[in-house]
Amino acid sequence: MRRDPNDLDRYTASERVTHWIVGIGFILAGLSGLVLFHPAFWPFTMLFGSSTWTRILHPWFGVVMAVAFLLMVLQFWKLNTMGKVDWQWLGRIGEMVSGDDQNMPEQGKYNGGQKLLFWLLVLGTVLLLVSGIALWRAWFHFPVEQVRWAAVVHAATAAVMIGLIMLHVYASIWVRSTIRAMWYGTVTRAWARQHHRAWYRQMTGIDK
């Protein structure tokens, strides 16, 4: 459904659906994983039926997340290759955070922060998947020393990933009119011009 003919298409329906599957997978894997991370999060077992169900389900949530994320990576990796301008943008991220983003280097569909986040999430997902398989005793049997390494890597990576995703979510809340791109796929021209000027020009043909 087209709300305003001037809106710009940012995400296709299949891109949005894949993103939400990854997001839901992450939330479920995160909540169930925190139970195993520290007893402070034990009450989350109630969300999954029981503590044993939490243990049974957690790896499957992870598999769903990883597979859906792989599809996302196939859809988006080309758009996230880092260029010189992206590093310049990251070098001046302080201005962005302080709320003074008028003079930031011009950005394409994604800015340097989004691209860096993308690659960190790729790395994190690979680490979680590999270490998670070693920890999944219902199906796999690895030497105990490898399992110990996997436990450390899995917990540390998960903590970093939760931090990255909190940043990702906060950025989408802080920068107004962003979340609609993930709900119904379009953004306003003004939004595109302010935050992703190069992409705006590419999409509209307006050279300003």
Partner: peptide, 29 residues
């Protein structure tokens, strides 16, 4: 390491809130 990680995560949430309150939303001019 785990209590530390929980502390850092909680600090991240708090920092986001404080950032929002101090800077306000990033709206289109």
């Amino acid at each position: 390491t785990k209590p530390l990680a929980i502390g850092v995560m909680a600090a991240g949430v708090l920092a986001s809130l404080i950032h929002y309150v101090m800077k306000g939303p990033n709206e289109i001019s």
